[in-house]
Design a protein around this nucleic acid. Structure first.
Lengths: 135, 135
DNA sequence: TTATTAAAGGATAAATATTATTTTTTATAT
DNA sequence: ATATAAAAAATAATATTTATCCTTTAATAA
């Protein structure tokens, strides 16, 4: 179990128990939606407010402690900030997996062909995950 | 000016004046958010209801007449359904451009390396558009 | 054409989702 | 240990999206 106290502080976020719990859930689950996170947090802090979830998610986003991943035909999920990577989104069970894909060649081509200056990439590949292919 | 009557009907959508106007705006603007679309439509149909916008957008999505594009740190925009393609999103002026990128090699690699069955791709490249680089 | 009918639009209420406000509590630096 | 700025809790307020109900209309066929 990782202690996120210092990592939170490095992102200018006070290390409150609620935030440590959010970080811990994000670490354990990998990707969580707002509503799932709220349900998980209520188990740990019975009196936690939904507003606290939103305020923390927004602050964590602003301070780049977490990232939002927008999924087609589904709700956004959030993850701890890591090295840039892409995502696999299962259309059946809505699970989200990380995947590292080298997009540099694509960026190079676009940079040469157009005048658009790319600063970040967001790639979500939708389909059916291994588990759902079996069932 | 394209007449979308038949195209709407092919998607099992009645060709009402409101829908023809929505199609026309999507064609002209390329990508529009819900609120922008509502503003544009009020100019043409002063008594149009916001619910009509939502109902039509949802129906058009269900019938694949349009697509939703989820943009990082911004609101979704909608476009007429075309051949699959990717998007360039300007972080400054929030304009969205279409761009055709061949992602087949990437899909092939993932298909070989993992058990995930990819059915569609969603790539949004964020950055600064040509216009905003000048200003 | 006109009549019929299922569907769409308008108005508005209701439900969800998100943000703001106020007071109480707490993490952190001194 | 104390002071203080920030966070949490408890709402209230907004914003966004969907549902409802009644009226109007597009599509179909006689």
């Amino acid at each position: 179990m990782i202690n996120y106290t210092n990592i939170l502080r490095e992102h200018n976020l006070k290390a409150t128990p609620q935030r440590l719990a959010i970080a811990d859930e994000l670490y354990k689950k990998g990707h969580i939606s707002i509503e799932s996170l709220y349900e998980l947090m209520v188990n740990k802090f019975s009196s936690i407010s939904l507003a606290t979830i939103y305020k923390n998610i927004n602050l964590m986003l602003e301070n780049s402690f977490i990232q939002e991943i927008k999924i087609p035909y589904s709700k956004s999920v959030y993850e701890l900030t890591q090295a840039p990577h892409s995502h696999l989104a299962c259309e059946k069970c809505f699970a989200v997996e990380d995947i590292t894909i080298d997009l540099n060649s694509i960026i190079d081509i676009i940079t040469k062909e157009s005048s658009f200056k790319i600063t970040s990439t967001n790639l979500v590949l939708s389909g059916i995950c291994e588990n759902c292919q079996l069932g």
